[in-house]
């Protein structure tokens, strides 16, 4: 088996920026859990305004990368710069202004089940930014409308909603604070193909309306083809290939080929343990 990190790439070399202004710059990022190395010197640049989709199998470090960028788990080594500001090794209070640039759609939605839908959507405004409740409610209803949900849903609790509806609410919550950067963690996992497509279209629309930078992680190729400008593949804790969406089918990279065609045989061997 050849070393994946020296595998030939037909697209741009791993992590190379394609545009001019870099929003997020990741250099030599390392993270281990015990003896298990999850991120192994990862380099990645994300341009302002682009929609990057990071693909990769389960347990390859996609979620960990996202959580490191968000500052939810501390990186062991390396550098992450958001708009040129270093966040690795910074304190929680130094990170707080950075968090205001972020919006995040969690895999399971992560809606607060003790609050009704509209308070979930307005949460970041009312609790995080001291917006008045009445004003927060008005914005929440507006954002809910943007994801196709009416006022009748606003009063319900997350537990009363279907999976697809919960995803919509979670999306509305992620965009409610008009973030500059939005992260999508497996946005279509657990949804039927039609609902998944609806969510994909909403993501594209919301990101375009906000003019935000979008970073998604997924293993759903249909979703990737819909929402990506650029695709990066993560394997064994590094970005082994990245390129524009159009070049994904002729990447010339055996790892990417195996992944997008979903073949069991190939250079990628699945880990038994999650991490």
């Amino acid at each position: 088996m050849s070393d994946p990190h020296s595998a030939p790439t037909a697209g741009t070399p791993a992590g190379t920026p394609t545009g001019t202004s870099v929003k997020i710059a990741v250099r030599g990022l390392r993270k281990s859990f015990g003896r298990k190395v999850v991120l192994d010197g990862l380099d990645l640049d994300i341009d302002a305004g682009e929609s990057l989709v990071i693909i990769g199998g389960s347990g390859t470090g996609k979620s960990v990368l996202l959580k490191c960028i968000l500052g939810l788990i501390p990186a062991d080594a390396g550098s992450i710069k958001i708009d040129g500001v270093e966040i690795v090794g910074s304190s929680a209070s130094e990170r707080e202004p950075m968090m205001r640039k972020f919006g995040m759609l969690f895999q399971g939605g992560a809606l607060f089940d003790s609050l009704p839908v509209w308070e979930n959507v307005a949460f970041g405004l009312i609790m995080g930014r001291n917006v008045k409740r009445s004003e927060g409610r008005r914005i929440a209803l507006e954002k809910l409308a943007a994801v196709g949900l009416g006022e009748d849903v606003a009063k319900l609790y997350p537990g009363e909603l279907s999976g697809g509806m919960q995803k919509r609410v979670a999306l509305a919550r992620a965009i409610a604070t008009t973030p500059e950067i939005i992260f999508f963690d497996e946005p279509t996992t657990g949804l039927d193909p039609i609902t998944a497509d609806v969510i994909n279209e909403l993501i594209v629309k919301c990101v375009r309306d906000l003019g935000a930078t979008a970073v998604s992680i997924t293993h759903d190729m249909a979703s990737t083809r819909k929402i990506a400008d650029r695709v990066a593949m993560i394997y064994q804790g590094r970005i082994i290939w990245s390129g524009p969406k159009a070049s994904i089918d002729n990447s010339g990279n055996p790892y990417v080929d195996q992944f997008i065609h979903g073949r069991a045989d190939g250079p990628i061997k699945m880990d038994v343990r999650a991490r």
Binding site: M99, A110, F112, G124
Partner: peptide, 10 residues
């Protein structure tokens, strides 16, 4: 993930 969600909502 609700605790992480709190953090991402500042």
């Amino acid at each position: 993930d609700q605790i992480d969600a709190l953090t991402t909502l500042s």
